[in-house]
Each structure stands twice: as structure tokens, then as C-alpha cells.
Design a protein around this nucleic acid. Structure first.
Lengths: 257, 257
DNA sequence: CGGCTCATTCTTCATGGCGGAATCATAGCC
DNA sequence: GGCTATGATTCCGCCATGAAGAATGAGCCG
């Protein structure tokens, strides 16, 4: 479970209501005034005005027959726009394809979101037995190789803020659940320049990740190669590390031209 | 060209500022406090608090180095979801065309949105009497064959969350309105691998749906064939089931390359 | 170290956003 | 057609909130 973000010092209740409505529309494609009022714990007149604002700016649309509200085109547009502006995603695609061609395993690109990583793109291996695309999926950073290399590029203070408790979330039996052990793993990842995930996110899966730093040297994304245990022994891991290092170097250079 | 929407009678300025900020994040990869203040024509302290609210609810994230704000995980998630839909739609189109050619009835692709299904794409039958395209339309999942096969692929807990009440929405006289009966129907759909809708969404319409699973086996979309009662007797239904099964198998394999 | 620029925090107060009442719209029943 | 029930929408008065501006903080540069 992701950490609860800190409540801003000067909280704007009406804006918060509106954003929570957007979050509701994301999960419930149809919502009525009374329902919105219940969920937000506001008066129906308040809910009605908030929904009218979402409709006005295109974030919601009202079905004239049922009077229910649905996500509007602008919400999708903003999301698509946010994704298309992710420079790293667009430029990384050819490198993911190349990594798959070179190593025969599934290649992915991840970005850090709090103490999780999100797979923003994936190209699958052609092998019948392979790691499937996880594009869109979010995983705890400490339980993934792509996450660990991103955490390794941060200061100790920053990592402590993301992981305020000693106990970490367990994903599989192989997941490390001690923060102090995580710090050691991050130190190792920093030294090696890559990290390996031996079944920490899923049994039978081995993944290797390297960071993609920005101009300041701080990683903003990571590249990973993942395969089944049978093909990802020491030789497979080494081959993945080589291919990832080369791809990351060239991609980093192309990202900041 | 879309008309400018009417300004709501009770305009909420603070909510409007926040929504306009989201719109800015659609076109600019990142934005700074002063820039936001200029664009919204508010004080920098106001812009700062608005951005803090977007960060709080995940719509924006702040780069600790540059202090600029960029789209947050919620917007990335919305974008990934929309992109995923587009991808499935593009790949499914030839199969829908083939299904129409094979069965002579209208074929459609649906995705689950909460406890509704949305018709993402449709190819209409060439027969004069036919089920029209419902692309863009949203229907209760429990009242559609495409919806039922999607619900059948979910855990009981997940279905209970989507349907918290025993009473279900009635669409036609044929619609089942009991949740416990829905659970039985889902068990049947799970066993058969398909579901049939006899006039539950519209009188005179019969539809057959099969799931399109992703790599994890969980269905993310469904294919349906729909026709008028006169042509969709037991023989028509069986023909549809065969054609759908074949199409779904091939399409599933192609979706995740 | 001082100056500059932008970000962030704090304080005060005017008004914007709230809830509740009143009214409207629609569906269902007789 | 009239009535009732339910949910949506509009209106109004009030006060707590969200605004701006001042003060402070942070980082960079010469």
C-alpha cells in the first residue's frame, strides 16, 4: 500500500472535493449527484455545483436521460497528453525493441511514482515462455530491479522519506521486508550500476534493471530485462547487464540533446 | 466545432483554477509556480497552494531539483488506460470484420468500466435487419453478455465491490435484478466460457460474448456477436460461440506482442 | 558574501463556497 | 390525468475559507 501523502499545510477543501470527484469518475464510470454527495460527504447542492464545474471544463459529461455523470473527454485528453509528453517513453521504444532482439527477453521502461515504479512501456520476448508485458502496472520499488536502481540514485534522506517504516511490504516470499537490508541493496546497486530481482515481485521471474539518469545525473526512469528463471542464470543476467548498459548509455545521451 | 460550454450558474473559482492547471499539464511537460500564477492570473501563493493540492491527490508531482511540477501518477494512469484501450481496439478491428463475415451478425468489442461495459468498437452486419453499432455506449455489465464474461473472470470479492447491493439495475423486463442470481450466471459463464444475453439489454436482441484474457488470464475486454431473436436461435448462438472462440484465441495471442 | 530570482510560508480579511430550503423534473402508480 | 415519491437543480443568507501580499527560505551566480 502506498504511503498516504502529507496533507498540504494550506488545504483547499473545494479543490480537494473536485479532485476526489475526478478520482471517483476514474473508477466509477457513472455517478449521480446524490452518490457524489455521499462519497464526498457534502450537501447535494455542493456536489451538483462541483459536477457542473467538471462538465464546464470537459472533465465530466452528463447523460441527459439518466442524469448520471461520466468521465469527460478532457480527462482522457489530459492523461494522453501527460503520457505523450513523457519524452523518455517515446525515445525508449526503439531501445526496448533492440534489447528484446539482442537478449531474447522482455524489456521494459519504468518511472518512479512515490515508492512504486510504473511500467510505462514494454516489448515482449518472442519466446513462447516469457515474461508478459506489464505496461500500466505499478509495483513496489523495493521489490523490483527497476525500482531499486531508481532508489539507489536518490539520497538516503529521500529514500527514508519514501520508506518511513522499518517494515517493508511483502510481495513474494523472496521479497526483502527490512528497510536496513534495502539500504544495503541500494548501496550494492549503486556500486554495480545495476540491480537484480530474483523472484521478489513474482516467483520464477528474474529481472535486471539499470537507471536512466537525467542531466543532473539523477535517474528518472529505468530499463529492465525480465525472463524466467530457467533462462536467467548467471550467463543470462550478465548478457542482460551488458545489453542494458549499452542501451542506457545511448538512450541517456539521446534524451538530453 | 464544439460549442463553448455554458459557464455554470454557480461558478467555483478555486475549482476552476485547479481544473485549468490540469489543462496546462496536458500541453506542458512541466510547469513552475510563477508560470502557473501567470497563466491562471492568480497570486504565486495561490498557485503554490493549488499545485500542492494536485500533488496531494496524485495529479501532479514536483521535481525536487528543479522545483517544477509535472503530471503525476493519476494522469499517467489515465493516459495508460486510454492508450491500452486504443491498442486493443486497433488490433481487434480485423477480427470484428471477420466475425461479421463469418456469422452475418454485428460484432463488437467491449471493455469493463466499473460495473458497466463500454462498446469500444463495432462492425455492423450487412443484413437489413440487424443490431446497430453501439460504439461509445455504456451498458450495465450484468445486463450484457460481454459484461458477464468480464465479471466472470473476476474474484467474488471484486464483483461484490462493484455490486454492493442485492438489487440490480433493471434495463428491460428480461434483466436479472438479483445479485445472487448474477453470481449463478457468472458461475455458468465461467464453466461455459461464454455468456448469452436474451433481451436483457434490449427486447428482441440476443447477444453472445466471450472474454479476451491478458497474459495473466484475467479478461480485459470481450468480444460479442449480437443479432435479432429470429436469427439467434440455438443454431445461431452455437455458430456465434464457435466463431467467437476462434477469434478470441487468435486475438489474445496477438494482443500482447 | 551579497544580490537576484523564484518558491514557500504566514497572516489578515473580504467574499466565495457552503448547506438547507424551495422548486423543478421525471417516473411510476392508480 | 392526477398524485406521490424521488432525485436533481436553483436560490439565498451566512461565515469560514481561500485569496493576496508580506515575510521568509532556498539556490544560484559573480
Amino acid at each position: 500500500m502506498k504511503n498516504e501523502p502529507a496533507v498540504p499545510p494550506y488545504h483547499i477543501a473545494s479543490v480537494d472535493h473536485a479532485l476526489r470527484l475526478l478520482l471517483l469518475l476514474k473508477t466509477k464510470p457513472s455517478i449521480r449527484v446524490a452518490e457524489a454527495a455521499d462519497e464526498l460527504d457534502v450537501a447535494r447542492s455542493t456536489a451538483h455545483r462541483l459536477l457542473a464545474m467538471l462538465v464546464y471544463r470537459g472533465f465530466a459529461a452528463q447523460n441527459p436521460t439518466t442524469r448520471a455523470y461520466h468521465p469527460g473527454p478532457v480527462l482522457i485528453e489530459v492523461g494522453m497528453g501527460a503520457l505523450s509528453k513523457l519524452d523518455v517513453r517515446r525515445k525508449a521504444r526503439p531501445y526496448l525493441e533492440r534489447l528484446v532482439a539482442t537478449t531474447g527477453e522482455t524489456a521494459s521502461l519504468q518511472i518512479l511514482e512515490g515508492n512504486h515504479v510504473r511500467f510505462v512501456d514494454s516489448v515482449e520476448s518472442a519466446n513462447a515462455v516469457r515474461v508478459a508485458s506489464r505496461a500500466g502496472v505499478s509495483l513496489p520499488a523495493h521489490a523490483s530491479s527497476g525500482g531499486k536502481v531508481l532508489l539507489a540514485g536518490m539520497s538516503l534522506e529521500a529514500v527514508q522519506r519514501l520508506y518511513p517504516h522499518e517494515k517493508l511490504e511483502q510481495v513474494t516470499e523472496a521479497t526483502n521486508t527490512d528497510r536496513s537490508t534495502l539500504f544495503e541493496e541500494l548501496a550494492e546497486a549503486r556500486a554495480l550500476g545495476y540491480s537484480v530481482n530474483h523472484g521478489e515481485s513474482e516467483p520464477g521471474l528474474v529481472a535486471v534493471g539499470v537507471p536512466l539518469p537525467d542531466r543532473t545525473g539523477i535517474p528518472v526512469a529505468s530499463l529492465t530485462i525480465a525472463g524466467p528463471t530457467a533462462r536467467m542464470g548467471p550467463e543470462g543476467v550478465n548478457r542482460a547487464v551488458e545489453a542494458l548498459r549499452e542501451a542506457a548509455k545511448e538512450l541517456s545521451e539521446s534524451l538530453y540533446r
